[in-house]
């Protein structure tokens, strides 16, 4: 029998991997992908709560969450392309100036 705890542990595992990716990688694209992992872990736990507490609200919130994630990726990658055109780098250590 798969219980709520199983899904929560899986969700926390993916969340931790995502946080580790944001912390240890220098490539900003990989950091954005790790943020997608974090979004997905949250979606899993929301869907699991929705199912096990038989309430539909969690499912609806997951749909909104996916929409927000799509918007976030579009904006994030647009900023990344704009930054790369000027600075010719994608490594966060080298993006250390506020003005160009």
């Amino acid at each position: 029998m798969v219980t709520l705890t199983h899904y929560l542990i899986l969700s926390f595992l993916l969340f931790s991997i995502g946080v580790a990716g944001v912390l240890i990688r220098r490539n900003i694209i990989i950091m954005l992908m790790s943020m997608e992992l974090i979004f997905n872990s949250v979606n899993i736990s929301l869907a699991a709560f929705s199912y096990y507490l038989h309430s539909l609200s969690g499912t609806i919130i997951v749909i909104f969450n996916i929409t927000i994630a799509a918007a976030e990726v579009a904006i994030g990658l647009a900023i990344l392309v704009a930054v790369y055109r000027r600075r010719k780098t994608v490594y966060v250590d080298e993006l250390n100036k506020l003005r160009y």
Partner: peptide
Amino acid sequence: LLRAPFLAATQVFVYVGAVMVLF
């Protein structure tokens, strides 16, 4: 598995279809 097929379809369309192609 969580009995949310609509979410699964949305996940495949939006994430795998749109977001990953953007990446």
